[in-house]
Nucleic acid binder design. Structure first.
Lengths: 220, 220
DNA sequence: GACGCTGTCAACACTGTGTCGAGATTTGTC
DNA sequence: GACAAATCTCGACACAGTGTTGACAGCGTC
């Protein structure tokens, strides 16, 4: 146990009269342990006991702080989402549509890349946890609404041609980004290299929104 | 137990001298039970015991036929993939690129929609099973290679403009389809309606491959 | 009629989750 | 500085699920 505490709280205890770590410290220790372990293996392969030991507490004590390991991931994910949103806000000052799209995509990509472990764990847990699924759905829905509004704006001012309903287009483009980022971050195959992923996605977005297919009336 | 057997083998046993069901029957019963139960809940929520009981056997006997419940899903998925491939082959006779793309996408969509339960379970198990992940990776890789070849062909004959590397484009478009189908089949939010999903995807594909953005050189 | 093959399952060992209740520690109050 | 309340801690338990073992049953066949 002493060994585990050292992992998280630094140097071993020497002085006298040291109280036990506060609740906040413990909670933080659990979150840090979770993010560290997620870098090594998936949440399914991490037991509540692993998280508890990593934070220097027993398993029942873990349950004093979190209802389950999903709850830990949810807390981590909340932070990440907050960070991603903040990143996008910062990019609002850009000018032309190309730059807006590029910066928005790049910003999300950066945030996720900096916390790969959490992003990938979240993608994985979407399958089994309704709460993760709902949180994620809200995030994507937010992106979709902004995208839809932007497409409709560009169509109204005549800059973008008509075509599929703006929302359907927005949904398809946003899911594409989500899935492609996931593949790139996890080095799944097939994937796009980290260096090329932004350019590729931006190109598809720009053509899907602004481009007119040369073959629009060829066949069917 | 008798009740479970009736579920799968039809009418209750009456005659004399009936041998126990053959190994093939049992294996089929397990697969059928799995597909039926997957229509109701996810594979995580289905225990080996559920599958065994549904097939009228005990849990240890289940392990005589399959190494795990993942192995059952893998067998189901193998069939589905085979069916999807066959569907695409049938569409080879179409003429213009628009029709080729549309028929290819529609064919995959149909196959998956007809076995929603399996397709969704596979997407879910990609997270936790390396074997499912690898099988799925091979499937998508196949689509990507065909798409890449098609794009390069169209570029060579001057029908499609240059841009991002053909393979990167192909990867992005195929992941988009995968993710959008998944969202549509599971009625996730946000999703595209079943009726509009093909048109939307085809439009993005055509524009991404053939369309030139009107703003290509607008901003930075 | 005993050998081998395919099936079959009760009982076991194990891993992991979540809960309970009894106690220790800390904090606030007078 | 003592007492109560709130906060924190964990041993021990109940439970659900997985996968294995070993004994044994039916069936063809030489």
């Amino acid at each position: 146990m002493a060994v585990s505490e050292e992992q998280v709280f630094g140097r071993p205890w020497r002085g006298r009269r040291r109280q036990r770590p506060s609740g906040d410290q413990r909670e933080r220790a659990i979150l840090e342990t979770a993010e560290r372990l997620l870098g090594e293996r998936s949440l399914n392969e991490i037991s509540v006991d692993d998280l508890a030991r990593g934070a220097g507490i027993s398993r029942p004590t873990f349950y004093f702080y979190f209802a389950s390991k999903e709850a830990v991931l949810l807390t981590l994910l909340d932070r990440l989402v907050e960070e991603a949103r903040a990143g996008i806000e910062l990019e609002r000052l850009s000018q032309g549509p190309l730059e807006v799209v590029r910066r928005g995509i790049a910003s999300v990509h950066e945030t996720f890349r900096d916390h790969r472990a959490i992003a990938l764990a979240a993608a994985e847990m979407r399958a089994s946890s309704a709460e993760v699924r709902e949180l994620w759905a809200r995030v994507i829905e937010g992106f979709v609404q902004e995208t839809t509004a932007a497409i409709e704006g560009e169509r109204r001012r005549g800059a973008a041609p008509g075509g599929a309903p703006a929302r359907d287009l927005a949904v398809a483009l946003n899911w594409m980004n989500e899935r492609v980022f996931q593949a790139t971050l996890s080095s799944e195959v097939p994937a796009i290299s980290d260096a090329a992923v932004i350019d590729t996605l931006v190109e598809v977005w720009m053509r899907a929104i602004y481009g007119n297919s040369a073959l629009e009336d060829e066949a069917g």
